[in-house]
Every structure is written in C-alpha cells, then in structure tokens.
Lab assay of single mutants.
Amino acid sequence: EPLWIRPDAPSRCTWQLGRPASESPHHHTAPAKSPKILPDILKKIGDTPMVRINKIGKKFGLKCELLAKCEFFNAGGSVKDRISLRMIEDAERDGTLKPGDTIIEPTSGNTGIGLALAAAVRGYRCIIVMPEKMSSEKVDVLRALGAEIVRTPTNARFDSPESHVGVAWRLKNEIPNSHILDQYRNASNPLAHYDTTADEILQQCDGKLDMLVASVGTGGTITGIARKLKEKCPGCRIIGVDPEGSILAEPEELNQTEQTTYEVEGIGYDFIPTVLDRTVVDKWFKSNDEEAFTFARMLIAQEGLLCGGSAGSTVAVAVKAAQELQEGQRCVVILPDSVRNYMTKFLSDRWMLQKGFLKEEDLTEKKPWWWHLRVQELGLSAPLTVLPTITCGHTIEILREKGFDQAPVVDEAGVILGMVTLGNMLSSLLAGKVQPSDQVGKVIYKQFKQIRLTDTLGRLSHILEMDHFALVVHEQIQYHSTGKSSQRQMVFGVVTAIDLLNFVAAQERDQK
C-alpha cells in the first residue's frame, strides 16, 4: 500500500453525458421521505430548503428570480454533511469501515464536522487534520463531537509532509485500522450531490432553472449537481466560483495573481482535486475576500440567511453572472454553511477592521482624538531585521541585547519573508524542534498583521487588541530589464502597544 495517494490523481470516472444510468458502476440512493420521529440526527441530513432572495437581486438590477439552496440546514450545519454520511455509508457497505475503526480526514473543517457527527452516532474514533487558518468555532464544535484535532501550517503546499493532507496520511500509516475516506478522491463525494442535492433542486424548481452558481473546494458539490442538471435540464448554465489565490478556475489566465492566501474558508485549493470535473462548468468567476464577507453580511442583514463567507462569494458572483438572465428565468445559488463557524471572524466588526474589510468610518461609535491620525505620526525608528541564514542562537542574543521581542526576517534585497519572535524561538528550542545552530528560517511564521503608514491609529489599535505587534510595510514598484514591473513589500518598522501608548501619553502631556 502506498504511503500516500495524491489528492489530485487523474480521475478514473467514466461518467458521460447521455450515458444510461443503468451502466453506472456505483451504488445510487434515492431521496427517502422522513418519518415524523427521526431514529437519529443523521436522518436530518439532506432535504434542505430552497429560499427566495428578495432584496439583493433587485438591489443589483437582476431581472431573474434568485433562489438560495440553504445547505446550513443540514444536521452539522453545512453541505459537507451529505458527503460525510455518504462516504461512511459506502465504506461500511463495501466492508472497508468496521466497528471500532478510526476515521482520519484532512479538511478545512466542515467535512470534519460532518464526519465527527456521523462518527459520534456510529461509534468510530475520528481524527481531523486541518490548517491553522480555520476558525476556532470549527475546532470547538469538533472537540465537542469527540474528534481529535491536529493543526497544520496554512501556507504548507498540499504535497508537503507538513500539509493537512501529508499529516493525515502519516497518521494513517501509524494508526492500525485507520482510514482516510479522502473527500478529494472519493466518488461518494460527487455521488452524494448527484443522487440527492441535484434531485432536490430539480424537484423544488419543478425542473425549471436557467443558471446554477456554486463555490468550489473539493469540487464534489458542483460536479455532482452539474452532471445531473446537464442530464435533466441541459439549458442550465453552470457557474463556478473560485477565490483569488486558488488555481481551480479555467482558463488558467484567471488564476494569475501574486496573491497566495485568502481568508474565506472551505473553497479554493492549490491543486485540482480528483473529484472535480471542470468540463461540466460553463464559466468560472474569481471572487475576493472583501466581496465575500460584504455579501455574507448582506445576506444575514437583508435576507435573514445566517450563512458563512463562501455563501457571500457565491452570491457576489451570482449578481454578476445572472445579469444575462431575463424576467421569468431563474438562478439558484448554493449557500454551503452557517455563520456559526465564523462568529469571531467576519461577523465581528473588530475582525473586519483588522483585516481591512471594514473602515473605521463605517462604525458610528465615538472615537478618541488620536483615532484618525496616521501611523506615520508615530515617528517610528528604523527596524531591526535579520536574514533567514542567521542562526536561532545568534538571533536570540541580538533580540535580548537590543531589547526586542520580535524581528522581521528579510532577504538580501529587503523583501519581507516573515517574522521571528523570542517566545516562538525559545519554545521551539525547548520542544526540540530546532537547535541553536539551525537557521532562523526554520522558525519563520507568517501569521502576523501588516499595516501601512497611511493607515489610521484606530486601525492599529484594533490590531493591537488581539496581537502583540504589527509590521509596518510599504510597497515598492521595481522595474526589470524586460520592461515588466513587480510590486514588493518592504519593512518600514515594527509597532507595539507600548509605542502607541507612549505616543498618546506624550501628545497629551505636551497639550497640557
């Protein structure tokens, strides 16, 4: 057995438009009618409502009807409940999964919650491996369901041993009777949507819809739904939504950006999952974080739909894509998950301010006199920076000697690579993860907040409520011999709460 199987392995699926269902090699399930009293909570997966979006479509000038398939009504709160249950049931049916076995899954959280929910009911041990950027709410729900959680670096490539995929496979090879159901490759993922989600949409719309818009992560949702719609409703256009920084969209030119990270969760990847059939997507749109969270908040405030950030991405694209539809036509959007997962993220004004998705003037509360002053007023001194090749031991000596707790790590040209902190280095040394002679590049981390000289002290204040420091950066445009230009970030300084307090105190003292 291989040590790991690539999540982007070539698909062996034989589905073709027009091929009889009787030739399918898979076990198919028909939607079942729910009894009045459910035998367990797993029976509350599927049969989610279709809700008309009344205000947002009109606000953006849509002539067509805009409908939302509300997947956050599933038992675990997301569309991923469907595939989690289906993968477990299919693994039980073919004898792969037996009582007492362990389920391991690399996930952005929602599939993990679905699997942990099913594992709690069915009696399996469950280990979820997820990147650090995923919300604390997801972690809390997983723990409450009895799952064990392993976190991995957000910026690790999918084929790196440190990625959530790599760590999951390492655990599988170490733990007896453990299984990775593997949402990236498992046919049960798109089949769950082909058999149930798509049929529900067709039934709820009486077979009449002209466009379907869905955000894409593993691709199982859009693949399964689109294949069924292509068979039953061939005139329906399928629109895929991919965040900026991901590479799922086609044509490839759409993916060209210097951005590699994004805040919206559960969609987009740096590889093409095996289950994603991009041939059934008629057109791709890219979405960005700001519009995703703005539209998610709009869905909550104006439509009462308590959905997550990827739902915002989907609707932001839908109001663009559906401009081509006329009166009497219908566009369906998939709202994948609930706001429950993001209470401390985009639902929080403070978080939105820190990330730059909300401006101070958007909030009406009274601010102190210094709130709208610029960061450049602080008069920061030149920063202490270190090269990635310097040793951890030497870096600790320098920081202690100069009285700093942290320093930016830059390359020879001064471009920011990340940050090192005294606390992080000492804990890594004590844990045996690094040696004093190791290069400081081994303990770089990139989960820090950046701020510009033109940003306000109010925004800085919000950042420092949650973080010990902020890195002050400025952009530099560099022209190359080819005539092309590129933008790079340079370090201007490091600012802490002490710097802000000293500035405010000094100004008030001078005024007296």
Rank of each mutant, 00 (worst) to 15 (best):
F295H: 04
Y269E: 06
Q329I: 03
D282M: 06
Q354M: 10
R452F: 10
A316G: 13
Q256F: 09
E361M: 07
F357W: 07
E263S: 06
L380F: 01
E365W: 14
G432Y: 01
F448W: 14
Q487E: 10
V333G: 01
Q302C: 11
R488G: 12
V491A: 13
V375R: 01
L430P: 15
N424M: 11
S461G: 13
E258A: 01
T482A: 12
D282H: 01
I390D: 08
E360Y: 13
L430G: 01
K512F: 08
S481I: 10
C307E: 01
D337W: 04
R459W: 10
V415R: 11
W351P: 05
M490P: 14
V319R: 01
D411A: 13
V434E: 15
K442H: 12
G308A: 04
G403I: 07
V473F: 12
W369R: 01
T314D: 01
D282I: 07
Q302P: 03
D349V: 09
K402A: 07
V410S: 08
L399V: 08
G414T: 11
V319W: 01
L426Y: 15
G356F: 01
L363N: 07
T391R: 01
I416C: 12
A382G: 12
T364C: 09
L353Y: 13
I390C: 09
T294W: 12
D242R: 06
I238V: 14
T279G: 08
G423V: 13
Y262M: 01
L500R: 04
L305T: 01
L353R: 08
S485H: 01
E401W: 01
E508S: 08
V443C: 13
E401I: 15
M352L: 10
G356A: 06
K286V: 03
G312H: 05
V504R: 14
H474Q: 14
V434W: 05
T456Q: 01
A382E: 15
A505H: 06
K449Y: 13
E397G: 14
E303T: 13
R452K: 01
Q376I: 01
Q439C: 10
L457P: 05
E397V: 09
V504Y: 12
R488Y: 14
K366S: 10
H474F: 09
V332S: 05
F293A: 04
E360I: 14
Q439Y: 12
L430D: 08
V494I: 15
S461R: 05
V264L: 07
I416M: 14
G328R: 13
F404E: 04
I334S: 01
E258N: 13
Q450S: 11
G418M: 01
L358T: 05
L305F: 07
S313G: 09
Q326M: 15
G423C: 05
G423A: 07
A249T: 01
M425T: 15
K484L: 13
D438N: 11
K345L: 01
A249L: 05
V280T: 12
I300S: 08
L387G: 15
Q329M: 13
A506I: 13
K446L: 11
E324R: 01
S348N: 12
G458L: 05
V440A: 09
D467C: 07
V420F: 11
T482K: 05
R509D: 15
G312C: 14
H372V: 11
L501T: 01
V315D: 01
D405L: 03
V473Q: 10
E401M: 05
Q489V: 13
V386K: 10
S461I: 01
T454H: 14
V494C: 15
H480P: 08
K442M: 12
M352F: 05
L501S: 04
K320H: 05
K283R: 04
E360W: 12
M343G: 04
K320T: 14
L501Y: 11
S428D: 15
V420A: 10
V280N: 01
G432V: 10
I451V: 14
F404D: 01
L373F: 10
D282Y: 15
Q450G: 06
L358S: 01
E327M: 01
A321R: 07
V319I: 10
K433G: 08
L299K: 10
E253M: 01
Q447G: 05
D467V: 07
Q326Y: 15
N288V: 07
D438L: 11
K446S: 12
P383Y: 07
H468V: 06
L417T: 15
W284H: 01
G356S: 10
I390T: 15
R452A: 08
E263W: 08
K484M: 14
M425H: 11
L305W: 01
I238E: 01
